[in-house]
Design a protein around this nucleic acid. Structure first.
Lengths: 214, 214
DNA sequence: AAATAGTTACTGACTGCATTGTAAGTTCTC
DNA sequence: GAGAACTTACAATGCAGTCAGTAACTATTT
């Protein structure tokens, strides 16, 4: 028989401390990428040594996973709201997010960098992003179908492609905006493209490129 | 007085050897990212030591720059063709590229990973991507203006946002496709979105989202 | 055409730094 | 006084870049 163990609760301020670390990690990973962002630098920002961070999170890989989860939860842009906006409202929310994102390049960059990095070999964030995009595409598709229903039309086969495209423009514009803020209007362009794509679903017209493509 | 120097040409096979290295580097950087892709692994693929690679390219940073330039030149997708396609032809070319890209995930990934990584602190590829996007946006904008002219309409103010958006969807779709090839149709979605955006420029309609946004 | 000088294309060994993770010890708090 | 929240010190890699040396090739000279 081994002796009984008393796990002993974490101290009250620890939760806040962990959040500080996650916040700092998000910043550093955003600025320098996951592979290129050392634990020591994150530790500096919260007045700790890198060993302290490992005490809390076990490994750098697990830290990344928790950073991504944290960003999701604490994020203003949480699309997965409970009030289930009735179709168009979701797209308005996306556009609003693009506008507010113009004021926080740090988070935009973190997202852009980490999502692209996640497709590399052995990256611990991959599962998170796979899942996230699947969920988001589903939500966008639902919103599109709701808008179709409102207008009394059958949801067309283009819904799936449109959903992926909506998320894609937003992400792609972020990269261009980060590279050249003077020449890319993140929010305005997002708005324009989302309008264009939603319109093409609700009220399709013949392609201006002809139909003789592959 | 210093003695005169005889620079002596490089050997005939060296150019081919350098190309082998660039090709291997593109693969490795694509699979693992620039920061996470060691020179030794590139060297292995061409039966060399990493010192040999440094002999040819001087440093890892310079290798990246040359890899990016190399990809541009040798790339089938070279949009900057000389024949100057008369508007719609450029978009058809983009769509065709998306189709052929479905057969070469390696290159797609290299591009996606390296472009996002380029926005991180101190990345040597940044200037390249800044420039590339500027050039590409200009070409797309020209094509859109040409299409407007063909139809006898003034080019609207939306051209700039549309140009950025076209490139953005293509890039964004690539990331989603790399994460989940089973559920994202790279080419079909690109086609759909490009159609939608071009149509929105040529023949704008009222936003389905209302006009009361920020 | 043979000898020779200079240069290229490397290799192998090494340096030095950066970085993740671990282990042992310290203090503070439940 | 036991475990939580650390720190300091260290182990263990991994990696870019340097350097000296070597073989092979090119260019020049004889």
């Amino acid at each position: 028989m081994t002796a009984t163990r008393r796990p002993s609760r974490p101290r009250p301020e620890t939760l806040a401390r962990r959040r500080e670390i996650l916040q700092a990690a998000l910043e550093i990973f955003g600025q320098k990428g996951f592979n290129n962002g050392p634990l020591a630098e994150i530790a500096d920002q919260v007045d700790m040594t890198h060993a302290g961070i490992l005490h809390h999170f076990g490994s750098k890989d697990r830290l990344l996973v928790e950073v991504l989860r944290y960003r999701d939860e604490s994020d203003v842009e949480g699309l997965d709201e409970q009030h289930i906006p009735g179709g168009a409202e979701l797209f308005r929310h996306l556009v609003r997010t693009a506008f507010s994102n113009e004021a926080r390049p740090g988070i935009v960059q973190a997202y852009a960098v980490l999502s692209a990095e996640s497709v590399t070999e052995g990256n611990p964030g991959r599962a998170y992003f796979e899942d996230r995009y699947t969920v988001l595409r589903g939500e966008v598709a639902d919103a599109l179908r709701a808008m179709c229903a409102e207008r009394g039309i059958d949801a067309p086969a283009t819904v799936a492609n449109a959903s992926a495209s909506v998320l894609a423009v937003m992400d792609g514009l972020q990269v261009q905006w980060l590279l050249d803020r003077g020449n890319v209007e993140l929010a305005a362009a997002s708005r324009f493209a989302i309008d264009a794509i939603v319109t093409a679903v609700l009220d399709p017209r013949p392609s201006p490129l002809g139909d003789d493509l592959p």
